[in-house]
Amino acid sequence: MIEKKGMGTWLTHAVLILGVLTVAFPIYVTFVASSLTLREVLDAPMTLIPGSHLVENYRTALFSGTRMNATPVAGMLLNSLIMALVIASGKIVISLLSAFAVVYFRFPLRMVFFWMIFITLMLPVEVRILPTFKVVSDLEMLNSFPGLTIPLIASATATFLFRQFFMTIPDELVEASKIDGAGPMRFFRDVLLPLSRTNIAALFVILFIYGWNQYLWPLLITTDHRMDTIVIGIRRMLAAGDDQIEWPVVMATTMLAMIPPVLVVVVMQRWFVKGLVDSEK
């Protein structure tokens, strides 16, 4: 490579290190705050050296919650996990099935369905907010996991991604399986599914994060504290009013809210980048 070395190099590294530090700084401060006592946090300027109350704060958060909110974060984590898993796997399953139908079958309403799925791209929750809430309420799905997850499970992006992928599978593979005696579902199970593994993994990372980070939807659908996801839970803890906020516990909860999705991204980085780039094609 040309001119990779030389006097620009240290500047390049400096830019990157500054970028990394800026990106990391808010998290670091949060982490420090989650290891201090409330008094230490309120004692401005707050120290930037981690304190000794880490375990205590996390234990309080996980098993009792803040005094005002009194909802243990462990339950919220479980709710978030259920929501993220159901949304991610639900989207993948129904998208795989509909992409399979659209690519491998000829049937009269094929294009109608295709466009119907496409249109969902243009209808985020925000643009149909009240009527969608009303539908969920009429179906008596408020404050329930089905209400929290099912309406988010339709996915044009995932359907298009799988459709795109199925189109790259050579026709001869279908024909060979026909001659081998496999029917459509057998072909789906024995050939398409195993071949889609990397795409499924990539999409799973993206969709897990999507599900975990939902905010507006659970805000609308759940009022019962037992249904709180962790992201909503933080908001409730902060609603206590400035003098009442137990910052160390809130910050511990914030850390707990970030750890699972960040871990998924860092551990599955390869699939994450693939999923991100592919699903935008």
């Binding site: 050579p170 001869e172 024909e175 060979a176 081998d180 005696g181 024995d190 050939v191 071949l195």
Partner: peptide, 20 residues
């Protein structure tokens, strides 16, 4: 008759082997 019931076997140009 469906291909599977014709008692035939076919060799394809690009082999069509199941990659997995």
């Amino acid at each position: 008759v469906e291909p599977k019931d014709r008692n035939i076997a076919m060799v394809f140009q690009n082999y069509a082997l199941y990659p997995h």
